[in-house]
Every structure is written in structure tokens, then in C-alpha cells.
Amino acid sequence: MLNQMDNDEGQLVNFDSATLQIAKETDETIIQDENNIRTTSSSSASHVPSIPFKHVDVHSFFSDRHELVEKAIKDCQDTLATDQDDEIIGTWLLTEISLWDTEKERIVILTKNSLITVKYDFISLKIVEFNRISLIDVDTISVGELQYPTTSIAPRLNGFADGLSSAIQCAVRKRWSSITDPSDVNFEPRTRNMMGLRLMWNKGQPVSFETKWNPFSKKIPFITFTSHPLFWYKGLKEEKLRFDCDAFRAALALILPHGVFMESPLIVENYLGLGAIIHNRNSLGFFKVRGKVSF
């Protein structure tokens, strides 16, 4: 009686058969999807997306200590945001990407009238340097994926560095047999695979050759941010917001006209990339515990 029932038209339906048929179709779909995934992986494009900051030990960051970040932000607010008429909109700990593609840890304080970026020493607990940008000067905010120029060899160097690092780790751990995905160890060019935000105040004018190629120039008319490495490792949403570049963008949208925002790839003009790769892979722009020393 449980296997057969009358429907509204009085016909008998065998649900056991229907169940078996559905299960069979589901199994076939899964197998087909797995085959599609394998085919896609084997014919992947030459630029492989990489997991942001997968090679870093986030627990070695001094900023991984919540109370330390809160103290640092309070110190910066008390020292730099002292204008009672300039309301503080929000504070974050983000990654600033320089003109030379080097990643640097920065405290960001957004007020009603200005943007303050701070290099803060999380070891000695002091402000090292800061920069104040008047929001009235900002004419464009570009939001998009960080990309290299088409002629840059930086993606190839990134791919080689990631592949070599993965190969060494597997060899040391003697786990070659456990690798089932060939993409775990390969030397294909690697994209940045990160979204970012760039504030510009150059009124549409190109950056001069002298400014662009002077590593000591302080007159760069734009600043680029992306999320802090800790963003990808924090579990709670409230914790992630402190390190989230998109949360910073949302706060900017509350106080700046909609017309200044545009969606566009953020070109990082790094053509050779060797110096930036060494700097970024060793997190030299972040305060960390590095073996027996910290800097």
C-alpha cells in the first residue's frame, strides 16, 4: 500500500521506480559535472588565478592581535584626527599597493573631509609616518580587479615562485603521492586575483615620466588599496570588516558623489616585478614575527 497511491485522476504511480530513476539521473549529472571540471582544468587559460596570501602565516602578523589593532587605531585617532568639526566615518587596516607594486600595511582613517593613511609600528606602538588627503581634491574612484600590463613578466615570475614554493613544500613533506590536482604544482603565470580601489586626484592628467619612474617621489596623484591579508582568514563577519576594502568603498560612497565612482581594472604598472615579488612574498611591508626577530 505504501508503494502505490491513487492520484487525482485515479492512476497508479510506482514511487520506487520514480525514485530509482531520479537517483540514476542525479548520478549521471554528477559524473558529467566532474568530467566537465576535469576538462576545464586540463584546458585552463595560461593565467592561473591564485589564492591571495596563501603562502603567509597570518598568525605571525602583529595585527592578528585584535586588542593591538584597536589600540593602534585609537592612538592614530587621538593624534591625527583632532578636529572636532571633522567627523570620523570609519577606520580600517588595509593593504596599500604602491606605484611599484609593493604591498604595505596601513591604518586608514576616513573622516567627513579627509582620508588619513598611517604607517604604524605595531612592535614599538608608534606612528612612523602618515599622509592626509583632502576628499575635495578626489575626482575619481576606480573599483576593479588588480591587473598587470599585457607586456609585464610579473605574472610569469609569480607563477614560477608559486610553483617552486609548492614543489619544495611537497618534496619536504614527502607527499607527492597525495597530489591529485596537477594545478597544485605548476608554473603557469599567476594573476593577482584581488579586487582593489584607487582614489585619484590628477584631474584626468597623466602622471609625468619623472614622477612615475622616481622611486622616491612623494607626489603620486593616486593611492591604491586592497584588503589586508587577515581578511581572508578571519571567521566572524565583524572581524572581517576591519580588514575589508569593500567596506571602505561602501563608506566612501556615503560621503562622496556617485559620479566620482567608476568600475575599471586597476593596472599596476609593474613590468619586471622581481623586486616587488621578493618584497611581497616576504611581507616586508607588514610588521611580523620573523623567526628570532620581528620587524
Rank of each mutant, 00 (worst) to 15 (best):
T39Y: 12
T40S: 07
K24C: 04
R38V: 10
R173M: 15
S60E: 15
R132G: 02
H59C: 02
T19K: 05
R281P: 00
N3P: 03
E129K: 03
E188Y: 14
I278N: 05
R198E: 14
D75G: 04
W176Q: 15
T40Q: 12
K292H: 12
F130A: 07
G291Y: 02
S264E: 10
W92T: 07
D64S: 12
D137R: 13
N280E: 09
L197W: 03
I153F: 14
A253R: 04
Q21D: 07
V143E: 03
V56I: 11
Y271T: 15
E34P: 02
P189T: 13
I153G: 10
D83R: 07
Q147N: 12
D33C: 11
I22N: 09
N270Q: 13
N7G: 04
L266W: 00
R242Q: 13
N36G: 06
M5T: 12
G159C: 03
Q169H: 11
T180N: 14
F187I: 08
I31C: 02
K240Q: 06
V185K: 05
Q84K: 15
E238G: 03
S177M: 14
P149A: 07
E67G: 01
V172F: 12
K54Y: 14
R249L: 12
T151S: 10
S63G: 03
I141S: 01
L164T: 13
V56K: 07
T191N: 13
E70D: 09
E129G: 01
N3S: 03
N202K: 03
L164E: 13
D162H: 13
M200C: 09
F295Q: 06
S98G: 13
I141K: 00
V268L: 12
R156G: 10
N202D: 10
Y233M: 12
K24W: 04
M195K: 06
L20I: 10
L197F: 11
F295Y: 07
L94M: 07
G259H: 13
T224D: 05
E145T: 10
N158G: 10
D246S: 06
T191A: 14
F286I: 06
P257I: 06
W176M: 15
E188C: 13
A251G: 02
G273F: 08
G144P: 10
D33V: 14
L230W: 10
R281Y: 08
F209Q: 11
D85L: 08
N214F: 03
E34G: 01
K240E: 04
R281L: 05
S43R: 13
E263C: 07
I127M: 04
L284A: 09
K234V: 05
V268N: 06
F225M: 01
N158Q: 12
I277G: 04
T26F: 08
V108H: 04
F286E: 02
E96G: 07
Y120K: 00
E263I: 06
S283Y: 08
T180D: 15
H55A: 03
E239S: 02
G163I: 02
T150M: 08
I278T: 11
